[in-house]
C-alpha cells in the first residue's frame, strides 16, 4: 500500500541520514577549505604503499557506515547472514562511491578527504591515475543529476540490494526486498516529478560496476608489488571485503 511505501522510504532516508559521515550543510560550509601546496606535496611525497594504506583506512571507515546503513534498510536483516555479507561484499564499495558524490565540489573538481577538499593531484602517489580520474568523473556525473538526499538514500539502498549478486543463498528473498526498494525509489521520483531520472540512475549503476572492477584490478596490482603492506597493514575489514 501507499502507506507502506511511505514508511519504507522514510526508514531508508532516516538510515541514510543517521549513517552519513557528514551532513550536507556541514560539507557546504567547508566547500572552499582546500589543501594548500605544502599539504598536497606531503601527500604526493608519501610512498605508494603508505598512501594505499592511508586510503584503505579511509575507505574502510566509510564502509563501516555503509554496513550500518544496510542494517536499517527494511528487509535487510531478514536475509540470511550469508546473503547480507554477499550483498555487502559487492555493494558496499558502490555505495561508498554514490555517497562520495555528496562530498564532491563540482566547481573545482575536489572531494572532501581528511578534513579538506582534495583534487586528483592529492592521490598521485597511489599510482593509479586512471582509477582516480574515473572516480572523480563518476562523482561529477552524479552531481549533475542534482539528486535530493532522499533520492540518494533510496538509490544507495537499491545499489546495495541487488538479487543478481554472486553467492546468494536465497535469491528470491533478496529479489522481494529489491522490488520494494525499487518501488520506493519510483514512488519518490514520481512524487518529485522526476521519473526521467530512473533511466539515468540505472546508467550510473553500470559505471559503478566498472569502477569496482577497476578498484579490484588495482588492488591485485598493488598486492603483488607490496604483499607485506596488503597482508599486514591493511585494515582487516578491507581485506575481508576486497582481498
Amino acid at each position: 500500500s501507499l502507506r507502506n511505501i511511505d514508511e519504507l522510504c522514510a526508514s531508508i532516508v532516516r538510515s541514510h541520514r543517521e549513517t552519513s559521515q557528514y551532513r550536507v550543510e556541514e560539507l557546504h560550509a567547508l566547500r572552499w577549505k582546500l589543501f594548500n601546496r605544502e599539504e598536497i606535496q606531503a601527500y604526493q611525497s608519501k610512498s605508494v604503499d603508505e598512501m594505499w594504506q592511508h586510503c584503505a583506512i579511509r575507505l574502510t571507515e566509510a564502509v563501516q557506515y555503509v554496513v550500518e546503513f544496510a542494517k536499517h534498510i527494511p528487509g535487510f536483516r531478514m536475509l540470511s547472514q550469508n546473503d547480507q555479507i554477499a550483498l555487502l561484499k559487492t555493494g558496499s564499495m558502490e555505495v561508498v562511491l554514490v555517497r562520495m558524490s555528496r562530498l564532491f565540489n563540482t566547481e573545482n573538481n575536489t572531494v572532501f578527504f581528511d578534513g579538506k577538499f582534495a583534487g586528483t593531484e592529492v592521490f598521485k602517489s597511489l599510482a593509479c591515475g586512471d582509477l582516480i580520474t574515473a572516480v572523480f568523473d563518476f562523482a561529477h556525473g552524479m552531481c549533475a543529476l542534482k539528486l535530493t538526499e532522499q533520492q540518494i538514500a533510496l538509490f544507495s539502498a537499491l545499489v546495495l540490494i541487488n538479487a543478481d549478486r554472486p553467492c546468494l543463498e536465497d535469491k528470491g528473498r533478496v529479489q522481494r526486498v529489491q522490488r520494494s526498494v525499487e518501488f520506493g525509489l519510483t514512488h519518490i521520483l514520481h512524487r518529485d516529478n522526476q521519473e526521467s531520472l530512473m533511466h539515468k540512475l540505472y546508467q550510473r549503476v553500470a559505471v559503478l560496476r566498472s569502477l569496482c572492477s577497476l578498484h579490484m584490478e588495482k588492488l591485485r596490482w598493488f598486492s603483488q608489488r607490496y604483499p607485506l603492506t596488503a597482508h599486514s597493514l591493511f585494515p582487516p575489514l578491507y581485506k575481508e571485503l576486497f582481498a
Binding site: 542494517k71 547472514q81 575481508e240
Partner: peptide
C-alpha cells in the same frame, strides 16, 4: 564464517 569475522560482528551488533 572465519573469513568474514569482522563483517559478522558488525552485522550482529544491534546498536548503531
Amino acid at each position: 564464517k572465519e573469513k568474514h569475522k569482522i563483517l559478522h560482528q558488525l552485522l550482529q551488533n544491534s546498536t548503531s
